[in-house]
Amino acid sequence: MTESKDIQVKEKQEVNASAEQTKPGPTFVPVADIFETELEITLLADMPGVKPEDLDIDLRENTLTLAGEVEPPEGAEETDIFREYQTGRYFRQFTLSEVIDQSKIDAKLNDGVLRLTLPKVEKAAPRKIMVKAG
């Protein structure tokens, strides 16, 4: 993957909700990068239009939930000329296999990109057990 290639257009993926929605409007899956080092798991998600106060991150029993609300950016007296993308809330869930140190989770939302750092719980140093003959 070279840095200078042309970016391809990608339509926003709508969520196939298993439960019925209670609020009107579409829900989209944010695209994400996830990578891991020995110490932590980092998640980057594109959520354009979400303000930091409208983003909800929840980690419960290995399930990480991202939910972001988006206010329609159009003013009241604006009428559509043409529309190529829709706006709506974002929702995505991940299952984490590692145990996460909940107290050290760090989330930043800059220019519509969420950066979530999930530090792994420090593993106890391996202990050698001596077996005595007897």
């Binding site: 970016i7 159009e74 003013g75 604006e78 009428t79 559509d80 000329i81 043409f82 190529e84």
Partner: peptide, 10 residues
């Protein structure tokens, strides 16, 4: 073509 755009008018 990237990016997708919306055009409105008032």
């Amino acid at each position: 073509v990237f990016p997708l755009i919306n055009v409105t008018e008032d």
